[in-house]
């Protein structure tokens, strides 16, 4: 039986060769078909990429074109270096908003990043499996909560608490906004860092333990450095969300166009000021143009920060 099977499997070389040829007189042979699919696919990919770039540059250009008209009546110097924002009386100093945006984003990250990374370490390395299975979906849910909800919680819980703690009448300001934003971006940064840490190969941990390191030393000496680029990516996403966040910020920052000289001074940032004023300005006014210019700045700043973080990370990677 076996023998017969073996016999029937022997095939003449020419027969084998022929069997490899295309059956039938197909006009589109395999190669041209492949070429067709390849080139179509390439065209689709390239046009998608070009489309995305066009949209981005289109937005940038439109904002810029309207925004630049600000400088017909306002000097460059005033816009960028004055903190006097009083459009009704012809003062367009946007420094306070620019400063506010940088300060708020920085403060948010200072609060959020260490906690988020610790949560990620806890989730990825320390939590027992059953708890991890419960915590991860919860974190994912938190990522999806609309920002207005965070703002509302800030307004009704955080601000009264801050008032109590500091004994001030007003607690609206950079700190309140930064705390709300930090809580908001925390799940994003934590979950993406968690994934990055979990993806670090086990062999690195093994090597570290085999040299006599403790769990703590292994996490901080090997695992976190190996997960660095993923963690930086998580921070960029969190940062982008913090810079652009409007609703939650409007609700707790105080919305007063004055330079924040303390953490509790009611102030405003680029986003919150745009949304508060855009509906009440005339279409053809310098005020309107200035708001467009601020929108453009916001975009430019977030792009810049992303590039900066990427560069920093590259430098860090080379150094170690």
């Amino acid at each position: 039986m076996l023998e017969m099977n073996a016999q029937s499997r022997v095939i003449a070389p020419a027969e084998l060769g022929n069997s490899l040829r295309q059956a039938g007189g197909d006009r589109l042979d395999r190669r041209s078909r492949l070429k067709f699919f390849n080139s179509t696919f390439k065209v689709i990919c390239v046009s998608a990429a070009v489309f995305v770039c066009l949209v981005l540059f289109g937005i940038l250009f439109l904002m810029f074109r309207t925004g630049i008209m600000t400088f017909e009546t306002v000097s460059f110097k005033e816009f960028f270096f004055s903190a006097n924002w009083d459009p009704e009386n012809g003062h367009f100093g946007a420094l306070l908003f620019i400063f506010g945006t940088f300060a708020l984003t920085g403060l948010t990250l200072v609060l959020a990043v260490p906690i988020a990374v610790l949560i990620a370490v806890f989730l990825a390395e320390i939590t027992p499996v059953w708890l991890r299975g419960a915590l991860r979906p919860v974190m994912d849910l938190l990522v999806g909560i609309p920002s207005v909800v965070y703002g509302y919680l800030g307004l009704t819980i955080l601000i009264p608490m801050l008032r109590e703690l500091t004994g001030r009448d007003l607690a609206d300001g950079l700190l309140a906004a930064a705390i709300v934003l930090a809580i908001m971006v925390l799940p994003t940064i934590a979950r993406i860092s968690d994934d990055a840490i979990s993806a670090v190969p086990k062999k690195y941990r093994d090597a570290s333990y085999a040299l006599g390191s403790t769990r703590f030393q292994t996490i901080f000496g090997v695992v976190l450095p190996a997960a660095r680029s993923g963690i930086v990516y998580a921070i960029i996403l969190g940062m982008a969300r913090a810079i652009g966040e409007t609703m939650a910020v409007v609700m707790v920052i105080g919305n007063t166009p004055q330079l924040a000289d303390s953490l509790f001074t009611p102030t405003a940032v680029l986003t919150s000021n745009i949304v508060m004023q855009i509906t009440s300005v005339e279409f053809d006014s310098t005020w309107n143009y200035a708001l467009y210019l601020m929108g453009f700045l916001l975009l430019a700043i977030s792009l810049l920060l992303i590039v900066a973080v990427r560069l920093l990370q590259k430098k860090g990677a080379k150094a170690s």
Partner: peptide, 13 residues
């Protein structure tokens, strides 16, 4: 000390 089957240097210098 231990040396593993697959070379596993850390992603460091």
């Amino acid at each position: 000390g231990m040396v593993f089957q697959q070379p596993n240097p850390f992603p460091k210098s």
